[in-house]
Amino acid sequence: MRVYLPCTIPALARAAETGEVGPAPLTGFAVTPSLTEWYASGDTEELEYVALTEAARASLRMLAADRADGVVAPGRRVVIAADVPDDIVVAGAALEERARVRLREAVPMAKVAAVHVDDRFAARDIEEAVVALPAADQGDDDAKFTVDGAEAHELLWYATQEIPDILEDVRHD
Rank of each mutant, 00 (worst) to 15 (best):
residue 101 V to S: 03
residue 53 T to E: 05
residue 77 R to M: 14
residue 19 G to W: 03
residue 28 G to T: 05
residue 8 T to K: 00
residue 109 M to G: 03
residue 123 A to S: 15
residue 159 A to N: 14
residue 23 P to T: 04
residue 50 V to I: 14
residue 96 E to L: 07
residue 23 P to D: 03
residue 34 S to P: 01
residue 111 K to G: 08
residue 70 G to N: 07
residue 164 P to L: 06
residue 55 A to I: 13
residue 83 D to H: 13
residue 12 L to N: 05
residue 168 E to I: 04
residue 98 R to K: 02
residue 67 R to K: 15
residue 81 A to M: 02
residue 130 V to M: 05
residue 112 V to I: 13
residue 12 L to E: 01
residue 74 P to V: 12
residue 38 W to R: 12
residue 42 G to F: 13
residue 116 H to L: 13
residue 65 A to L: 10
residue 147 V to G: 09
residue 22 G to M: 14
residue 138 Q to F: 08
residue 138 Q to V: 01
residue 22 G to S: 13
residue 147 V to F: 12
residue 5 L to R: 10
residue 36 T to F: 00
residue 154 E to I: 06
residue 15 A to S: 07
residue 89 V to I: 14
residue 23 P to C: 09
residue 87 D to K: 03
residue 160 T to H: 00
residue 69 D to A: 14
residue 125 D to P: 00
residue 150 A to R: 06
residue 136 A to T: 05
residue 161 Q to C: 00
residue 171 R to E: 15
residue 44 T to H: 07
residue 139 G to I: 08
residue 80 I to F: 06
residue 131 V to M: 12
residue 37 E to N: 01
residue 44 T to G: 09
residue 104 R to E: 13
residue 122 A to Q: 12
residue 135 A to H: 03
residue 154 E to W: 11
residue 5 L to G: 07
residue 85 P to L: 02
residue 104 R to M: 00
residue 87 D to S: 06
residue 55 A to W: 10
residue 72 V to S: 13
residue 124 R to G: 10
residue 40 A to H: 15
residue 138 Q to D: 14
residue 10 P to T: 05
residue 167 L to S: 09
residue 1 M to G: 04
residue 62 M to W: 08
residue 52 L to V: 03
residue 60 L to F: 05
residue 73 A to V: 13
residue 83 D to F: 06
residue 65 A to R: 14
residue 29 F to G: 00
residue 163 I to R: 02
residue 111 K to S: 15
residue 156 L to T: 10
residue 5 L to K: 06
residue 137 D to R: 07
residue 81 A to I: 07
residue 20 E to V: 07
residue 152 A to I: 07
residue 151 E to K: 02
residue 74 P to Q: 09
residue 79 V to A: 14
residue 34 S to G: 10
residue 74 P to D: 13
residue 113 A to V: 15
residue 161 Q to I: 04
residue 90 V to C: 01
residue 122 A to D: 06
residue 106 A to Q: 09
residue 4 Y to G: 11
residue 58 A to N: 04
residue 27 T to I: 09
residue 107 V to G: 01
residue 54 E to V: 05
residue 24 A to I: 11
residue 69 D to W: 08
residue 77 R to S: 10
residue 92 G to P: 11
residue 73 A to F: 09
